[in-house]
Design a binder for these strands. Sequence first.
DNA 1: TGTTTGTTCGCATGATTTGCAGATTAGGTC
DNA 2: GACCTAATCTGCAAATCATGCGAACAAACA
Lengths: 156, 156
Amino acid sequence: MHNENVRSPEQLVERFRSEGLKITPQRQLLFSLLHENAEHPTADALFTSASALMPGISLRTVYQTLTDLTEMGELGQVTFDGGAVRFDPNLTDHHHAVCNECGTIADVSIDHLDVVSISQPNDFSPSSTSVVFHGVCAKCASPSSNLDKPTNNQNK
Amino acid sequence: MHNENVRSPEQLVERFRSEGLKITPQRQLLFSLLHENAEHPTADALFTSASALMPGISLRTVYQTLTDLTEMGELGQVTFDGGAVRFDPNLTDHHHAVCNECGTIADVSIDHLDVVSISQPNDFSPSSTSVVFHGVCAKCASPSSNLDKPTNNQNK
DNA sequence: TGTTTGTTCGCATGATTTGCAGATTAGGTC
DNA sequence: GACCTAATCTGCAAATCATGCGAACAAACA
């Protein structure tokens, strides 16, 4: 179940190559992890995943690559409630729903939002609008699934 | 130009007293600073203001008092783009507009938002919704006021 | 004035992120 | 395949933001 919104590792490799950047094993690994990851991982979470497959990879390199991708517009960044920055491989215009129980962050398609109905505040020209819902996700709300409810609350 | 939305220092003193908490000079000072401050100060900004009036006050005390007020529901917390937590004396239901130029954070009344038109994401029960506009405020957008445009960009 | 208990303060610590410099390596050249 | 060079990776120091902890202190009350 990989993310259809982020570019494939092959595409990112091509992008890097076209920019004169080198294709290192570390970068290739991170490209893959981001493509497989439809969640909103922190740099540290990606570092943990990467370390399992490439022992010795540096957290610094993870940060560096994520920053590079962000500056290239291939990755988004979001933060909730003062926690660590989360990287968002979904480049489509969308918003987020954060579960108070398990910390899961779900994407909310812009289609679901009647954004045009949001009038502008006085004397302000918004270039972007972000909406964050806080609440309880279906899995945590469902009594029948309480037994296998995810408990890894990722909130700060 | 004090904030009409936050409780007055007198009210907060009463609230603390009723909870069996002590009324210290540090707390009284912070109550006043919050009441006068319609902006969205960080703990450090309040510490700086407080230090000018009460040299020797501890940053730790500022954090402690702000946390207390937050837990008592007398203060809100907001964070933008991974920066430091900002404390919001405005307890009314509202949203925020962040200026990309000067970092000013303006409140956006809930009246301006057609919130009911925001449909719920699949299988999610939102208990709260926060909307953040990013853009350029009137002061920074106005060419005539470029000369005295605030330059204290508070973004991270 | 004295006692009690909550507060304040300073410091250590933790979490996240970035700066820096030396070691390493990808990618092109011969 | 060997070599060069610049980009990259890595480890560590350091900056920022926030909290834990314990000793010193002071508000509230008898």
